[in-house]
Amino acid sequence: MIFTIMDTAYIKSLPFLIEGLKITVSITIIGLFFGMIIGSLAGLGKLSKNKFIRGFWSVYVEVVRGTPILAQALFLYYGVSEDLIGLNITSFTAGVIAIAVNAGAYIAEIVRGAVYSIDKGQHEAGRSMGLTEKQTMRYIVWPQAFKRMIPPLGNQFIISLKDTSVFSVIVVHDVVFMAKEYYNTTFEIFETLVMVCLLYLCITIPTALYLNRLERKLDV
């Protein structure tokens, strides 16, 4: 009995798919790490008093949010890296950069919104005791804003995780890519794709549940 379950097309595809899942998760986490840095700079840049800084980051955010991630990935990997610069980066690296640049734009809006939502009096209280602009941001505004960023950042994690699925077009060996490779030889298309969806859900549903709980606990 156990032998037959283990032997079904569903289970047999798993080892391949999990290899892909590792890539999917790695790209998401590394990409979001850099996306968080870009997004913080961009979000604070959009709040800057300097109109050139504000303009620069606004253009970045609008361009990224106004174009599909599939086009962005192709553009980065084939367009910029291969054609324009002639630099052969791996498709994994291209995927990481694509997530960082793409999520960075959405995180910018999360950061901007959260920082903007902190009462102006907090900033004034900091500055009026002699703290510099940077110190006020670091010790007073950012810690409060960051708390408000956690739920939408979690949401961005889920979105970016799913977005990596389009990277099979730049030959990233993610879950979807591995699934295609697998069913092209076994022809167990339905079973394989069911498992693909289940694997995504195994990450996204617990993340969403955890975020709900966190949101209540943080009271934001």
Partner: peptide, 20 residues
């Protein structure tokens, strides 16, 4: 200005304590 402000205390209508 930060030096001057450090010598001038300010108390606000809405307190503006740091909640965190």
């Amino acid at each position: 200005i930060n030096e001057v402000r450090s010598q001038v205390g300010m108390v606000f209508q809405h307190f503006n304590l740091f909640p965190h």
